[in-house]
């Protein structure tokens, strides 16, 4: 126990920078994932058969292969495709975001599906364009269903980013590896990382509950 405290006192800046890395990578991942997920969800709900087939396959592949494999794939393939320089971190964030978009598109689709059919009909009956039906009537109501699930996805992403430590992108698990190789105290340095993850997710899930309750009240 006192070893844990000693490590913490000496190396806490490393952990904190790792915590910061985990947080911003998760935030960017969910943000980009939500934008891409929205596009995917809208295409999957549209009536254009070809596009729908492509996005269905996109989602199936992302859900049907290990995320670690996807990270490697982006890390290897992405720099070869894009015409500009990409850091490892950028490749990994892109991979995480694309992976998250598959799950988020499902969340968005379910959220939109849960809006009463009568709302679509009423919005169409007053002559709104399909775009306005979606943006003014359906999405604002779907957000209520989507937001809590999106917070859950954020929590899952926080844990998922640990895989990125394979590429030393500077999140919390990378901090653990750094501290571990400096101190040779594998267990103790790992416990510290674990406690930080746990505390973080504990706070986040509490926050989620507050948000959920807020949304319920405004119903």
């Amino acid at each position: 126990m006192d070893k844990i405290i000693k490590i913490w006192l000496k190396y806490y800046p490393v952990y904190l920078s790792g915590l910061w890395g985990t947080l911003w990578i998760s935030a960017v991942t969910v943000l980009l994932g939500a934008m891409l997920g929205m596009v995917v969800a809208l295409i999957r709900m549209s009536h254009t058969k070809v596009l729908k087939g492509i996005t269905d396959l996109f989602v199936e592949i992302l859900r049907g292969t290990p995320i670690l494999l996807q990270l490697y794939f982006f890390w290897i393939a992405l720099p070869k495709i894009v015409p500009f320089e990409l850091s490892d971190t950028q490749c990994i964030v892109a991979a995480l975001a694309v992976n998250a978009s598959a799950f988020i598109s499902e969340i968005i689709r379910a959220g939109i599906g849960a809006v009463d059919k009568g709302q679509w009909e009423a919005a169409r009956s007053i002559g709104l364009s399909e775009t306005h039906v979606m943006t003014r009537v359906i999405l604002p109501q779907a957000v209520k269903n989507i937001l809590p699930a999106l917070c859950n996805e954020f929590i899952a992403t926080v844990k998922g980013t640990s895989l990125a430590s394979v590429f030393f992108v500077g999140e919390l698990m990378t901090s653990y590896k750094t501290v571990q190789s400096a101190t040779f105290l594998a267990l103790q340095s790992l416990v510290i990382a674990g406690m930080i993850y746990f505390a973080l997710n504990y706070v986040l899930s509490r926050l989620l509950r507050v948000i959920e309750r807020r949304l319920m009240v405004s119903d």
Binding site: D116, G118, Q119, E121, A122, A123, R124, S125, I126, G127, L128, R136, V137, P140, Q141, D219
Partner: peptide
């Protein structure tokens, strides 16, 4: 075409995310 045809439904289907006034001015 639909703008020329108003429809009223059994279950009202008013927009809960807008005020009464906004419901009316939206379209």
């Amino acid at each position: 075409y639909r703008q020329g045809i108003g429809m009223v439904f059994q279950h009202f289907n008013v927009f809960p995310n807008m005020t009464v006034l906004e419901n009316v001015t939206l379209a």
